[in-house]
Design a protein around this nucleic acid. Structure first.
Lengths: 213, 213
DNA sequence: AGAAAGCGGAAGCACTCCCTCCAGTTCCGT
DNA sequence: ACGGAACTGGAGGGAGTGCTTCCGCTTTCT
C-alpha cells in the first residue's frame, strides 16, 4: 500500500519537520494545538501541512503510535525485573514520567475521536502485562490488595495533571506527587521513600498559581 | 456603600437565580462556562445578566467568595482536633473533597485574572492555619518530614483533576486517589487505609476513557 | 527545459464568547 | 389604578479561533 513513488526530497523533509514540531508542541501543550501553530513551528505553510497529511487527526495518530509502543516496551521491561515490588514500581513510575513529559499523552488516552482503534489496540496489549505486574506484586504481599488494574491509568492521569500545572516552572516537581502515590500503593512501609525533587520555592508556587491560560 | 435602594423583587429574584445557576455550572463544568449558558440555566436573558452583574468576572468573584471562606473554616475546625494526624488528615481530605465536588475551585485557585486579590487574601489567611496543622503533625512524627506546605494545594489539584475525569461516571472514585495520597503522606504505616469507594467497573473505565469534550 | 510535484498563505466557513442596545413588560409608590 | 422608573429578553455587533480549500508561484526531477 505504501509502494507509491517516494516523496520528493523537499516534501519528505517538510513531512519530518512537521512531525518533529508536532511531537514537541503536543508534548508541551497537549493535542489541541492548532494546525497553524504546528505549521509555524515547523517552518512551513499550512498548505504544505495539508498536502502531507489528509487532516489534523492523521498527524495525531502518526505522532502517538510510537509513544504507545514505548509504554508497552516499558511494561515488558518491567516484567523482566525479579523483585515484584521493584517491577511494579518501575512500571508505574516509568509510565507516569512519560505522561509527565508529554501533555498530549493524557489527551490521547482519554480521546473518543479517531485514533480510538489505535488506543483500543494499545489497551488490549497493555492490560495483560500490567495485570501480571499487579498480580505478582499482590501475591508477594507488597502491593495493597484493594488496588484494581483500572486504578493505574488514573494514577498516570493524576501525575500528568500535576506535571501540566508545574511543568513550566519546576519540571521535576511531579516526582513528589508520584512518590506520594507510590508510597500509598505499598502494602506497608516503615519510612517514606526519599523525594527525588525539592519542594517548590515561594516564587515557584506563586508563579504556578498565577499561570496564564 | 451598599446603602443604594434595594432591588425590585423580580430583579433580586433573578439575581439569586443567576447566582444559583452559576454555582451549579461552575461546579460541574469549571469557571469557563459561557454567560449564555449561565443565563439559560437561570432562566433569564443575557440582558438581565448584564444588568445584575457588570461583567462575567464579577459573577465569578461573587460565587467563590463564600467557597474560599468555607475552606478557611475547614482549617479552623481541623485545628480543634486533638490528634495531630487526625487533624492534618481531616483538613487535607475535607479540602480535597471540596475540590472534587467543584471543578471551578481549581480554576479559581490557579487564576491570574480578577479575583486575584480575593485569592491572595485567602492564601494569606490559610497559610498559617495549614502551616500549623503541618508542623503539629511533623512534630508528632506522624507526617513525613519532607513535606512542604506548598505540596498540599497540589494534592488538592491532583484529586480535583481525577474528579474532573471520573465525576460523570463514578462520582466517588476520587476517594481512592485521595486515600493513596494520604497514605503516602504518613510517616509510616503498617496496613493500608481501607478504600471508601469501589474500583471502576470495566464499563465505567471505558466510558471515562472515551469522554466527550 | 518542461512537466509534475510541491509551496505559502490568503480567505472561506463555521463556530464561540463577551457585551450592548432597545422595544416591550413589570413593578411600586402614590 | 395609573404613570414612570426599573427591569426584561434576545438579536446582533465585534473580536477571536480553528480547520480546510484554493491557486498563483517555485522547486525538483528527468
Amino acid at each position: 500500500m505504501s509502494a507509491a513513488r517516494p516523496l520528493r526530497v523537499d516534501a519528505e523533509r517538510n513531512r519530518q519537520r512537521i512531525l518533529e514540531a508536532a511531537r514537541t508542541l503536543f508534548a508541551e501543550r497537549g493535542v489541541d494545538v492548532s494546525v497553524d501553530d504546528i505549521a509555524a513551528a515547523a517552518g512551513v505553510g499550512i498548505g504544505t501541512f495539508y498536502r502531507r497529511f489528509p487532516d489534523r487527526e492523521s498527524l495525531v495518530e502518526a505522532v502517538f503510535a510510537t509513544k504507545l509502543d514505548r509504554i508497552v516496551e516499558a511494561a515488558r521491561a518491567a516484567l523482566e525485573i525479579e523483585d515484584p515490588w521493584e517491577a511494579f514500581r518501575t512500571y508505574v513510575m516509568t509510565v507516569s514520567r512519560m505522561h509527565a513529559g508529554d501533555r498530549g499523552l493524557k489527551d490521547v488516552m482519554l480521546s473518543t475521536d479517531r485514533g480510538r482503534e489505535q488506543v483500543t489496540a494499545f489497551r488490549a496489549t497493555i492490560q495483560p502485562l500490567a495485570g501480571a505486574l499487579i498480580e505478582r506484586a499482590k501475591a508477594a504481599g507488597v502491593l495493597r490488595e484493594d488496588i484494581s488494574p483500572f486504578d493505574i491509568p488514573l494514577i498516570h492521569q493524576a501525575v500528568g495533571a500535576i506535571a501540566d500545572v508545574t511543568r513550566d516552572c519546576s519540571p521535576d516537581y511531579f516526582e513528589r506527587t508520584l512518590t506520594l502515590l507510590v508510597d500509598g500503593l505499598a502494602q506497608q512501609r516503615t519510612a517514606p521513600t526519599p523525594m527525588s525533587a525539592p519542594p517548590l520555592s515561594v516564587d515557584q508556587f506563586l508563579t504556578i498559581m498565577a499561570r496564564r491560560r
